[in-house]
Design a protein around this nucleic acid. Structure first.
Length: 597
DNA sequence: GCCGTTTTCGGCCCGACTGTTTTCAGTCG
């Protein structure tokens, strides 16, 4: 059973307990355990074999260990089942609605038997909510809007969508408010999560222009941004709006001396902050979004920069992408934080498509655009014949494509053009092209585009076969997930990564914002095993080449350093770092054997 | 249900905002 599934059952139990009222802290224990397991990089199933190991985890006690045992054994949990007899599972959706929390959801359930978002929406339309205690006309309207929003979307957005929204609004504020000194992105967007709930922007004022009136003027001005669909909140130092794209943006207007404390606080994660707060308390201070102050007397101690606060807490600066409370604080204490890979470290891009298959641009255009970005090399990796919808190439066309790439090199100086392929991994695990042809390519990237619903065992075998094939050098978008659209393939990731390490096959961190695959947790697993990583864009147009930044941020979330990512190497060293292919001339039988694998 | 150098009970991060109230409960991040 996957950690995600165990965590889901615990989360649901926590929410149901919250609805049920009673002991305040009890549900938080379930929630804390769920959060921990969700972000754990070891499998909870493996840890559970040794009860002591589970007990060592913070927030996990005898009770939770027993419940985890039950969940792993039976696939469900008796308390959750019991609560679900009392409350329908659809109430968990209702709980997701903005402005409705456990207390109010509980009232709606008791008073009207409202169990679904549709039920609540109907009641709001019939104006039946406004007379309940704690409700009113305005909250009825908000609930109605929340129901409509829920129906329209699940409320999360891809990293690129949130990035675009943040950049557009930031530019508007910077360009049109002369009293504003800086606009900074915080929240999960700054941490680089693959999906974003809402965008957090922090605004500071220029010296001398930071009186409440100036701040109010800026808030008013932000509310005039034409792409705002509606405003959710407008306080003294906060403006919350929903854009016409459905993305929610919270803008906070800050005093400069609080900027570091606020940036730290609003960047999160919540779990990271809770530990920092506890640490501050232990040292005789208290940390909030304004400052680090003394516990007694509230004397200001630090707050202007994040570095200053970490330093006072006797920690080195921790990069935002690491702030998930998954070991970064311990690493910071020991001085073993990774030096994370940066976008500037990337020397080439190893997956992209041209008009030869389903790309929009020619070899030359891709080469020139990549050279503009400062790359030293790229691999042109069009599809193989199994992907008929993408005009995949057979052996003959692949050989012609190699010639075309070699010829294009003459016309595009200043960047090395590597002849590559994105060869399909067939249902059997065989590669889609003959070994003799694969042997002539500089870079062989292999990936799955069909039969995505095989059983866990079948999919594991399929990928193992592909990795064992001597021509495979890189596995591209290894889990096949499409963010918010398609679940990842089901297979044994540990076995696949172990095999990749054994055979010297690199795993891709695909930068395409719909994919981000491998994801952070899996990249970290790969790093721990010493598996080589490449970060590629899978560009289908020159306009996709800048997606590299999303792959890099995902890699950073996976704790990857420059040395873990082989396309940070110069071309010669990169080619040496790729798994050596058998040459068709040297071993006549090798190619044939590989084909039959 | 978990936790503890204010430790076996009593609190669980904590401050802002909203909407409903006339001083605060509920929600949110």
């Amino acid at each position: 059973m996957e950690n995600k599934e165990v965590a889901k059952i615990l989360f649901e139990t926590a929410h149901l307990l919250e609805l049920d009222g009673g002991n305040i802290g009890r549900y938080r224990s379930y929630e804390k355990a769920a959060e921990l397991i969700y972000s754990l990089h070891e499998r909870v199933e493996d840890l559970a074999k040794d009860k002591q190991k589970l007990l060592e985890l913070p927030g996990i006690g005898e009770g939770i260990v027993e419940h985890i045992g039950e969940i792993l054994k039976t696939g469900d949990y008796s308390l959750r089942r019991k609560l679900l007899k009392k409350y329908p599972a659809t109430l968990l959706d209702v709980l997701q609605l903005q402005s409705l929390g456990p207390k109010k959801v509980s009232i709606l359930w008791r008073e009207f038997g409202a169990a679904t978002v549709q039920d609540v929406e109907k009641l709001a339309r019939e104006e039946k909510l406004r007379d309940l205690p704690g409700f009113g006309e305005k909250s009825e309207q908000n609930i109605l809007k929340a129901c409509e929003f829920f129906t329209k979307s699940t409320g999360r957005f891809r990293l690129d969508q949130a990035t675009d929204e943040a950049e557009r609004l930031s530019a508007y504020v910077r360009e049109t408010c002369s009293s504003v000194e800086s606009v900074t992105t915080a929240g999960s967007l700054r941490r680089g999560r693959d999906t974003i709930g809402d965008v957090d922007l922090l605004v500071t004022m220029r010296p001398g222009q930071d009186k409440q009136k100036d701040v109010d003027d800026v808030a008013e001005h932000i509310l005039k941004y034409p792409r705002i669909e509606r405003s959710l909140a407008h306080g003294e130092n906060k403006v919350s709006v929903v854009m016409d794209t459905g993305v929610q943006v919270d803008v906070r207007l800050l005093q400069k001396k609080c900027f570091g404390a606020a940036l730290l606080y609003f960047t999160g994660s919540k779990e990271h902050n809770v530990v920092l707060r506890g640490r501050a308390n232990d040292m005789g201070w208290t940390l909030n979004e304004y400052a680090l102050t003394t516990l007694k007397g509230g004397k200001f101690f630090a707050g202007k920069t994040e570095e200053e606060i970490y330093s006072k807490l006797k920690l080195p600066y921790i990069e935002p992408e690491l702030r998930e409370n998954t070991g970064e604080i311990e690493a910071a204490e020991k001085g073993t934080l990774p030096v994370l890979v940066r976008l500037e470290d990337m020397r080439g891009d190893l997956q992209m498509h041209t008009t030869a298959s389903d790309g929009r641009n020619s070899i030359e255009q891709m080469g020139e655009a990549a050279r503009e970005l400062g790359y030293e090399y790229i691999a042109l990796t069009d599809h193989s014949k199994a992907v008929t919808v993408a005009n995949g190439m057979d052996e003959k066309r692949t050989l012609e494509q190699i010639k075309k790439i070699r010829a294009a090199q003459e016309r595009v100086p200043g960047i090395r053009l590597l002849a590559g392929i994105e060869v399909d991994i067939l249902k059997s695990g065989q590669l889609d092209l003959d070994g003799e042809v694969l042997a002539q390519l500089d870079v062989v990237v292999a990936s799955v585009h069909s039969y995505m619903n095989l059983t866990r065992e079948e999919m594991t075998e399929r990928l193992l076969a592909a990795i064992e094939n001597p021509y495979t050098q890189i596995i591209a978008h290894p889990t096949g997930r499409l963010i918010m659209r398609r679940e990842p393939f089901d297979y044994d990731m540990q076995k696949i990564l172990d095999a990749a390490k054994k055979h010297g096959v690199a795993m891709e961190c695909n930068s395409y914002p719909d994919r981000l695959d491998l994801r952070d947790v899996h990249l970290r697993m790969a790093k721990q095993r010493g598996v080589k990583i490449v970060i590629s864009t899978d560009s289908h147009s020159t306009t996709h080449l800048p997606f590299m930044k999303y792959g890099v941020i995902t890699a950073r979330r996976g704790w990857l350093e420059k040395k873990d990512v082989i396309n940070t190497l110069p071309a010669g060293e990169l080619l040496a770092a790729l798994r050596p292919k058998p040459t068709s001339a040297g071993k006549p039988g090798a190619a044939k054997a590989a084909k039959q694998k």
